[in-house]
Amino acid sequence: MKAIKVFIDREEQFKMLCLVEKLNGHPDIMATATGPTEFVAAAEGEYSMAYTRAVIEGRLNDCTIEIIK
């Protein structure tokens, strides 16, 4: 299992809920908001995490990703 924490700017806060919902639609990924400008995403394996990161980086203009596990 791989997990990341994502920090976003307040200007992009409105994108977070749709992004979390999209990630949760994938069977190997789980995401949840942990604050108004941050969320956590966990994926079953390398490929699912690569997909998660690609979706996040494609949707958000500026974010910081911290590897948790």
Rank of each mutant, 00 (worst) to 15 (best):
R10Q: 12
R10E: 14
R10S: 13
E11I: 14
E12M: 04
Q13W: 10
Q13K: 15
F14P: 00
F14K: 12
F14M: 08
K15T: 01
K15N: 00
K15C: 02
K15V: 03
K15H: 03
K15I: 01
K15R: 08
M16V: 09
L17K: 15
L17H: 12
L17A: 13
C18N: 12
L19R: 09
L19A: 04
L19G: 01
V20K: 10
E21K: 15
E21C: 04
K22M: 13
K22F: 13
K22V: 13
L23P: 01
N24V: 09
G25K: 06
G25H: 07
G25W: 10
H26F: 14
D28L: 14
M30N: 13
M30E: 12
A31K: 09
T32H: 09
T32C: 06
A33M: 14
A33C: 06
A33L: 11
T34G: 02
G35Q: 04
G35R: 07
G35V: 04
P36T: 04
P36C: 03
T37P: 01
T37S: 02
T37D: 02
T37V: 10
E38P: 01
E38M: 10
F39R: 03
F39I: 06
F39M: 01
V40M: 02
A41S: 09
A41N: 04
A42H: 07
A42R: 11
A42P: 00
A43Y: 07
E44L: 15
G45Q: 07
G45Y: 13
G45M: 05
E46R: 14
E46N: 10
Y47K: 13
Y47V: 08
Y47D: 04
S48W: 12
A50W: 08
A50M: 14
A50T: 14
Y51N: 05
Y51M: 07
T52Q: 03
R53V: 15
A54C: 05
A54E: 15
V55G: 00
V55T: 06
E57H: 11
E57P: 04
E57F: 05
R59T: 13
L60T: 03
L60R: 02
N61F: 06
N61P: 00
D62K: 12
D62Y: 12
D62T: 12
C63E: 03
C63A: 02
C63P: 01
T64A: 11
T64W: 09
T64K: 15
I65P: 00
I65K: 02
I65H: 03
I65V: 08
I65T: 03
E66C: 04
E66P: 00
E66A: 05
I67L: 12
I67D: 11
I67T: 15
I67M: 13
I67E: 15
I67P: 07
I67N: 14
